[in-house]
Amino acid sequence: MLSNFSSSGAQRSRTSSTAQVAKAEFLTFQLGQEEYGIDILRVQEIRSYETPTRIAHAPDFIKGVVDLRGVIVPIVDLRMKLGCPTVEYTPFTVVIILNVANTVLGVVVDSVADVVNLELDAIRPTPQFQSQVDEAFIKGIATVDERMLIVMDIEALLSSADMGLLKAAVG
């Protein structure tokens, strides 16, 4: 295990008081050449990649399941889910264990960068253009230290039909 995050330990303010600016913390990670961020409150821990047990008839982006301290956790390769052109497993490849819609699951990413604290009004809407990632899965784009950060809506990405596929595959 590389890191352990506790949702109760992450601090964020969502007040609209003029004295305080609404902020949130995001875990940043790499997928290909892009840097993404997800709400730190969804993150349980970060683990080294280990080959999961494959589930028959599961979609390609569902790599399988792992036993995480007695809990069977489905593993989704986020690179495959988002249509990244190449998917390589390196020593930097990690699994981010998330709690999304009361379901624990892992997502495979190229590497984890850091945790950033963003003012919520610094997250700008995404421009309207054709891309590999459906804009419904993106909250917006922020600039962090002169680099662009794509802020993901991980709940939208891993909900609806995908969550049904996950539950069917491991259930």
Rank of each mutant, 00 (worst) to 15 (best):
E45C: 00
V43Q: 06
Y89S: 09
N102M: 04
Q33T: 10
P52K: 07
T103D: 00
K139L: 12
T53W: 03
L68K: 09
P52L: 06
K81S: 07
F129M: 15
P91Y: 06
C84Q: 11
L118N: 08
T86L: 10
I138C: 05
S131P: 08
L27I: 08
K63I: 00
E119V: 01
G37Q: 02
T86A: 14
R54G: 00
S131Q: 10
Q33Y: 09
V107N: 04
K81D: 13
V115S: 04
A101Q: 13
P52A: 06
R124Q: 11
A58W: 00
V107I: 15
V116A: 09
H57T: 04
V112N: 03
G37M: 00
G106I: 05
C84Y: 15
S48Y: 10
N102S: 10
I40S: 09
A56K: 12
I46C: 01
K139W: 03
L31F: 03
K139S: 06
L41N: 10
L105R: 09
E35D: 11
V73M: 01
Y89F: 14
V104R: 08
V133H: 07
T93L: 12
L118I: 12
A136K: 14
A122V: 04
G106E: 07
T126I: 09
A101V: 08
H57P: 00
V108T: 11
S131K: 07
R42V: 04
F29Y: 04
V107E: 04
Y89H: 13
T126D: 02
K63T: 01
C84E: 07
L82W: 13
Q30G: 03
E135D: 10
E34V: 03
E88Q: 14
L78T: 05
V94I: 10
A101S: 13
C84W: 15
